[in-house]
Design a protein around this nucleic acid. Structure first.
Lengths: 231, 231
DNA sequence: TTGCTTGATTGACATTTATCAAGCAAATGG
DNA sequence: CCATTTGCTTGATAAATGTCAATCAAGCAA
């Protein structure tokens, strides 16, 4: 594995406290691979052979049922995904595809489980990571159940504003994927953007400008127990 | 703490592999308390002072935002709840209230974190528990995003049928709570039940009889990656 | 028993969201 | 450059879901 990948992965919370020997062992069994865009990496229901780490590019996690499908999350570098399935040695609950050309590190799940048995610092890191993931999904459920689609969009925009640190930013996702992630159709997203113009949101293609933050905030009513993914 | 509570708690996956000394220490710092029905035990946003264990009764986890609220889960004996917040030393994401007269064991969160630092068998048990919780919430999200409310109800009934092992069973929840849990209004639940009559569901008060399992299954299209909470 | 409360149901109606079809505009490939 | 594709938007309409008000039924208390 190239040194740059090695050190990028090493910096992740999940691995940063791990003993050198254990981390080295994990990495020796790992594969590094580049994938073109729109490749399905994982199909839900399959056994979880690898813990995945995105080193560059972007991955969409999605799920399907009865001919419908929905975007569950977008994973950006550098992060792991589908840790819970690897640990439990259970089937993947979500499928994954590359959105762009992406570079991944794949660690065999059985190596992850072995390291988890042997390294208590790794086990502790996993606990914190899973607790974080769990809380993120709970927040997402609250977002879905307590808010209308327009409110979800408004709060999504405020979160993106925080991430970018600016009132003007570009959407990180295609609109149709954003629509699916927020649990609505592209048509409805388009109309929701229209509806938010009245609260100071200007949309030009992918570019968003929040012209009246107070007004948008009054409408969106953001709440750290739903919108703050660091807590 | 009474012996019967002690041994009930000891049997939980979370504690069963723990060293005697560590478990004893945890329990020495724990409180046992009885609560009447409809008591709010936890308010979302508060710091997580205790890991809760229901020994008897039933607890509802719920969340609120902007004057609306929604039922997130019902916790029945013997299980823990709000583990992730205790471990992360973060605010509760959900509120909790007793549905019935309930008996709880409360373990100070800092004791839980200390035990997690000291006992690698406890840390491992926590990993498996959190992975399970995470996957349950992901399944719930898929249920919400991929299905209509009537489909969610149909699949809920099939899951209850599995749990009870019989085609006839009683709802474990008041209908208005079930409605909220499934993400719909009581009125809509009532109409959804009506709609399922055509697929062989007979409702008399709290009592459900599935008269045509094949027909209901054809409509509900249950899927282990959404409906099987053991996987 | 009677009256009261609570939860469930029903009907009428409003709102939200999805669907379908058409049009538009930017990006892509010859 | 044009033609084509792709994704986005718009309008018309339909379906799903929520709201409000009234009613009903069961359980509970005086």
């Amino acid at each position: 594995m190239p040194d740059s990948d090695y050190s990028e992965v090493r910096k992740l919370h999940l691995f940063s406290q791990m003993e050198d020997a254990q981390f080295g062992a994990l990495m020796r069994g790992a594969y590094v691979q580049n994938f073109p865009p729109q490749i399905e990496l994982i199909t839900e229901g399959d056994p979880s052979d690898f813990l995945h780490i995105v080193v560059s590019g972007a991955i969409e996690l999605f799920s399907s049922w009865n001919g419908r499908d929905t975007s569950m999350a977008t994973v950006r570098p550098v992060s792991t995904f589908i840790l819970a399935a690897s640990i439990k040695d259970a089937a993947y609950l979500m499928s994954a595809r590359t959105l762009e050309k992406s570079r991944l590190v794949l660690i065999p799940s059985q190596d992850v489980r072995a390291a988890f048995e042997e390294s208590s610092s790794f086990a502790k890191a996993i606990v914190l990571e899973l607790a974080q993931c769990y809380r993120s999904v709970v927040k997402n459920t609250k977002d879905l159940k307590l808010r209308t689609s327009r409110e979800r969009l408004a709060n999504y925009l405020l979160r993106q504003k925080e991430r970018s640190g600016s009132l003007a930013f570009d959407l990180a996702l295609e609109k149709r994927r954003l629509a699916s992630f927020l649990g609505m159709t592209p048509e409805n997203l388009s109309r929701s953007f229209k509806g938010l113009e009245a609260y100071g949101v200007k949309v030009t293609g992918n570019h968003i400008v929040i012209t009246d933050l107070d007004d948008l905030t009054r409408f969106a009513k953001p709440n750290p127990l739903i919108d703050d993914f660091s807590v």
